[in-house]
Amino acid sequence: MKNVIVACGSGVATSQTVASKVKRILDENNVRANVEAVDIKSLDSYIRSADVYVSITKSNKEYEIPTLNGIAFLTGMGLEEEKQKLIDALK
């Protein structure tokens, strides 16, 4: 099973919210994957086993896996594009 990780500052609210939205989109599109919200401090240890990274805060760091704009999942702005990237990355 593929893994999606979502990271935000503290994991209090935003990453969990985005993770549940991502999970819902995947369910609606019959894509099976694990979705996990993580604390940004532990991102590096999770990213090794991840297939897609949904980022809340823009980072200068480059990752080798597809990185999506998490804010789109929160606000709906630009969501269709990110949704497509998400599904394509997990096919």
Binding site: G11, V12, A13, T14, Q16, T17, S20, T57, K58, I71
Partner: peptide, 28 residues
């Protein structure tokens, strides 16, 4: 939030008091 090098002019501020992140996950 998504790009800390830019700013947005905000009209509505919602201070969220989250006491139990697991229970209040759907709030946001």
């Amino acid at each position: 939030m998504g790009d800390t090098e830019s700013e947005v002019a905000v009209k509505i501020v919602m201070f969220l008091g989250i006491k139990n992140p697991k229970k209040q996950i759907s709030l946001l």
